[in-house]
Design a binder for these strands. Structure first.
Lengths: 257, 257
DNA sequence: CGCTGTGAACGGCTTCACAGCT
DNA sequence: AGCTGTGAAGCCGTTCACAGCG
């Protein structure tokens, strides 16, 4: 079947839209900050500002969780923190393993944000025998051979892949076979997983490329002209005769300056 | 203005939908792999599989760029690599600075995926004087005091923030004031930026929380039919029935172990 | 009165299915 | 015949604007 994203279109979720789920952690963070300052209640307007969204969206998001606000007043901070935590499943402890302890894996192991939210790094795993036993972030690195045992002994259902691209799919398969059903993938590859397994990917270079796209447009906005550069001649058989379309004919050359 | 996300709903882009832009890097990667294997052409079906999307989506995405395929044949790999690279602005060199050289910043500096795609790490910046001069990934770390000079000397328009959350907003403001107009933020904070500045955020703990949400639902699914929650949001009347709204101890700890 | 909760309108993205070119 | 390119339909998420409750 397909690769990458494993949403769940079939299983009638429970009514909470994916887009809303993705914002709950944001609200939770803002609420936690308020909680630490002992603020008792917030209005949707204030909380929305703190979370960087607009208030209508926030109210609609919360409406999927239930009626947790008080009209004329706002939301009770502590109560909402609890409800969102519960909804996200953060009232329980999630053991995670990190596979691939290079620069990035080590950074992840050291990242404080995990531990603070119910995630516990149960093990660090690397294929390099020389790494075995070496402590990273206070946790000894274990060899890949132990992967299956570690997963099952610790009841791990969430795995983080921080290996090179070439190793990722194989690691993924071993994780899944051992019982992992959620994967956070930092390797720049598309992972194939069976149904029922969720994959989220974080790809640093993709993010930069998206920024570059917008950046380019900004730059072009003032100057713009940007001729259609002659492409590196298609080596393919079919395209031999140049007659390419590109910024001719039906293509809307450039934006309205 | 608002915070966080700085799309651009106003500026009549150039017709390429944001969702499409976000996938172009994915296609580019798949195409690059094909190119390295000297594959001359691909069909939308094959390429879509390699990129982990469906073929109709891919064809529609490409249609925004122009008519780059050949009916009955497919797409010329080399040609498409060039076109997408150009569209993304990767035919030029983008100097970036990384601010905050902790574990994560160092990992980013070492990350090969940047250099390979037209991004050049122009400088590493950290607030810790003890770091100054120390080479990370072969590049000497410079002190924050130099930030403005570095940005302007190198014509940097893209900045990466990998500082602790507390420092991020201030660093952001200095970057923007110095001329940076695109920011990739790894700090777990909502950044406020003026119009015209793009921010993308990568938040590790948010990704895990989203996975935890789905993971929790999976667990509840097998255990039983899960509490009979109304599929849609409860209306005012229904809310009264399950007596929520009590910040005091009577909160029902649903959650099948 | 103030602020939440939400139906309804809107806009963007995805999917379908087939016309049209090679 | 094969595969791209695209109108049209459907779906999902966002925004609006106001009813409803405290």
């Amino acid at each position: 079947m397909a690769t990458g994203r494993t949403h769940r279109p079939a299983t009638r979720s429970r009514g909470i839209p994916e887009a809303t789920v993705a914002r709950l952690p944001l609200y939770l963070r803002a609420l936690t900050a308020l909680s630490e300052r002992s603020v008792p209640t917030v209005s949707s307007e204030e909380l929305a500002a703190a979370a960087g969204v607009n208030s209508a969206k926030l109210r609609k998001d919360f409406s999927y969780l239930g009626s947790y606000g008080t009209r004329g007043v706002g939301y009770d901070v502590e109560y909402l923190v609890y409800q969102i935590s519960r909804e996200l499943g953060l009232t329980q402890d999630w053991p995670v393993v990190i596979v691939g302890i290079g620069n990035l894996g080590a950074a992840l192991a050291n990242y404080g944000g995990f531990a603070s939210r119910g995630f516990r790094v149960a093990a660090l795993i690397d294929a390099d025998p020389a790494m075995a036993g070496k402590p990273v972030a206070g946790i000894p690195v274990q060899h890949t051979d132990e992967l299956e045992k570690i997963i099952s002994d610790n009841g791990v259902s969430i795995g983080v892949i921080a290996t090179p691209a070439g190793a990722a799919q194989q690691v993924c398969e071993r994780l899944v076979a051992a019982g992992v059903t959620s994967i956070l993938n930092f390797a720049p590859t598309v992972l194939s997983v069976p149904d029922g397994v969720d994959v989220r990917k974080v790809d640093l270079s993709i993010e930069l490329q998206i920024l570059a796209f917008h950046e380019q447009r900004k730059a072009g906005e003032e100057t713009e002209g940007e001729a259609a550069v002659p492409p590196a001649a298609p080596t393919g058989a079919a395209a031999a005769a140049d007659g390419r379309k590109g910024p001719d004919g039906d293509v809307p050359a450039v934006m309205p300056a």
